[in-house]
Design a protein around this nucleic acid. Structure first.
Lengths: 169, 169
DNA sequence: GTCCGTTCCATGCGTTCGCATCTACCCCCA
DNA sequence: TGGGGGTAGATGCGAACGCATGGAACGGAC
């Protein structure tokens, strides 16, 4: 086997792995979407509420955007809608006149818990029902490794071709 | 450990695994989106072209919808746009006056190959660069199992609470 | 042949998205 | 202290989405 062949195998293996990961995610997501629990907030909105539920003091809009699936403008408008619906509260960020601090209201926290509980049940149904404990652990591990190996979003703009794993100076 | 505790652990393990899978997929997808190759077709459009590239005789719109990320109306309009751009051809389905058969044009097939080649390189970079061969194989296997265990989309509407794994009568 | 329920795709409509851009504010250095 | 580059979030705008629905074609019952 030549060096080129070996590289081609690696490329192919990565592409196949990604396609499986992608399709599995789509398949599960479609089923989760069918759940009738998304009448008050959409799944994407829930994802924001969930992230906020882990940050008791609230989060800067900018930090929220980083862990969100949305672009910054879309998130800005989604937070606006969530505030109108009473799930979220916006306040000026302490110490930074530009910033906005977003936090759950009591209603928002209650909604997140209620929806979250049912959502987890659905996940257990579709994911837990398909994989045993060992497979779940393997999936958790490898997906975690995959995500951990990605460069920070800030590093993306200045060259994705740089060395991965190179320690910061 | 009680039976309830064991069940709770399972639910939690499934939820954690799903979250890792989901976040890894989002992280990778965001990076793939940054690739400058999406100026002629979007990633979602490419996904449709890719599916068509594996079906030499073309596909019914309904079959395309099943493997797509989009709703049927959205796919219908996307195919309309792809046809306007010359990547795809629509024809009446033989033997079914309601159906539409979608197939790649020569230009569409060429575009799919060209974009696909570059896309695979990006995947190799972000996925292959993060996981070794063994991890890639593990990911492929478990993601494949996860997807294979999902009920067909047609089965979804008549009760997701039914027994999993029950053989069809 | 006719009827009736189902399937397939297209279309009207309101919502949400991303891109580009704008304003306000922060920070640093001369 | 005042200017200039950089960052945080909001907004105008066109594109694309999903839901609900419409019209045509299929297929089995009678």
């Amino acid at each position: 086997m030549t060096v080129q062949d070996a590289a081609a195998v690696d490329v192919r293996a990565a592409a196949v792995a990604w396609e499986e990961l992608f399709r599995a995610q789509v398949a599960i997501m479609r089923r989760l979407q069918r759940d009738p629990i998304w009448d008050r907030v959409s799944l994407r909105e829930y994802d924001v509420l969930f992230t906020l539920s882990r940050a008791p003091g609230g989060l800067r809009l900018r930090d929220l955007a980083e862990s969100s699936l949305l672009s910054q403008p879309s998130l800005s408008r989604m937070v606006e809608r969530l505030e109108e619906d009473g799930w979220v509260r916006r306040a000026p960020a302490p110490g930074d006149g530009r910033g906005v601090l977003v936090a759950l209201t009591d209603d928002g926290a209650a909604l997140q818990r209620e929806v979250g509980r049912r959502h987890v049940q659905a996940i257990a149904h579709y994911v837990g029902g398909a994989l045993d404990a060992e497979q779940l652990a393997a999936l958790t591990r490898v997906a975690g490794d995959l995500r951990a190996a990605q460069p920070g979003i800030a590093d993306l703009d200045r060259g994705a071709e740089g060395d991965r794993g190179a320690a910061a100076p």
